[in-house]
């Protein structure tokens, strides 16, 4: 059992390593992608500086907290797309029959699939997030909590993307709905949760898991609470289990395809 887990981890690490090697084939494109993504994110700081000049408090957040929110959102999505980028393009694999290659391997299909691609610009997101946290609200404890929540958040977001992507096993063109839901999560993650009330707040903490992936961790980093941390951790385990269940249920309906395809 332990050997099987070790071998699975070895293959996943190799896969991620090869993905990054592929992205590094063109050094200039690789570096500019990372830099411009970080720069793109930084542009939003100006927007928040202007807003906080007009109002001291937005949804219970100060400038420092908003920057922490931005930093965590960027790092969380960045890490998810560095390690598990394929979870975000699962419908393409399902529709064009590209899961075949993973199904003939003696390894966990889900892990093999989601670690089979990486997104270069996500490295820029991840580094930007850490940098913003260090500039605006650094402390040693917060730094390690930030890394922990980036990892937990990445798992929650990946699990959500997986569930949305798995809809393509059942419905034609479900990728449109899935993409919208994932994009919706990304958009909401960059605004303080205090500005949302009622049904929207319920939605953000239950249906779209941005509350547990980003908002709650920010609250914990500002005012540490072990109970909340364990709740977030429990939620991550629960949503991951749900995603695994949905994916494997869907896989039973996988119909492959005769389209010509190459592993790029």
């Amino acid at each position: 059992m332990l050997t099987a887990v070790k071998n699975q981890v070895r293959v996943c690490v190799l896969s991620i390593k090869y993905n990054i090697m592929r992205e590094m084939l063109n050094k200039v494109t690789f570096l500019t992608n990372i830099c411009f993504m970080a720069l793109n994110n930084a542009a939003f700081i100006i927007q928040w500086v202007i807003l906080f000049h007009l109002k001291k408090d937005i949804g219970g957040y100060t400038m420092k907290e908003v920057m922490l929110l931005w930093g965590l959102a960027a790092s969380t999505f960045g890490l998810a797309c560095i390690l598990f980028d394929r979870a975000f393009s699962l419908p393409d694999l399902i529709i064009s029959g590209k899961l075949d290659a993973y199904l003939v391997m003696p390894k966990n299909v889900l892990l093999s699939v989601i670690t089979s691609s990486t997104n270069t610009s996500a490295i820029g997101d991840f580094l930007y997030g850490i940098l913003v946290m260090c500039i605006f609200s650094f402390s040693v404890g917060r730094f390690f909590l930030f890394l922990l929540f980036s990892a937990i958040g990445a798992v929650i977001i990946t699990a959500f993307a997986l569930m949305m992507g798995s809809l393509s096993f059942w419905f034609v063109r479900a990728e449109l709905f899935g993409d919208n839901m994932v994009n919706c999560m990304i958009s909401f993650a960059t605004y303080p949760d205090g500005i949302f009330h009622g049904k929207v707040r319920f939605l953000l903490y239950n249906i779209i898991p941005v509350g547990m992936a980003v908002y709650q961790p920010v609250h914990i980093m500002m005012r540490f609470d072990l109970g909340s941390l364990l709740t977030v951790l429990g939620y991550a385990i629960l949503i991951s289990a749900a995603a695994v269940f949905v994916f494997y249920r869907g896989l039973r309906r996988y119909s492959s395809s005769s389209l010509m395809a190459a592993r790029m």
Binding site: Y18, R22, D100, A101, A261, A262, R263
Partner: peptide, 16 residues
């Protein structure tokens, strides 16, 4: 215990 070759689908990583 089995091997598969799909002539229309590559299994190799093209950049490696």
């Amino acid at each position: 215990q089995i091997g598969t070759v799909f002539g229309q689908k590559e299994q190799l990583w093209t950049h490696l």
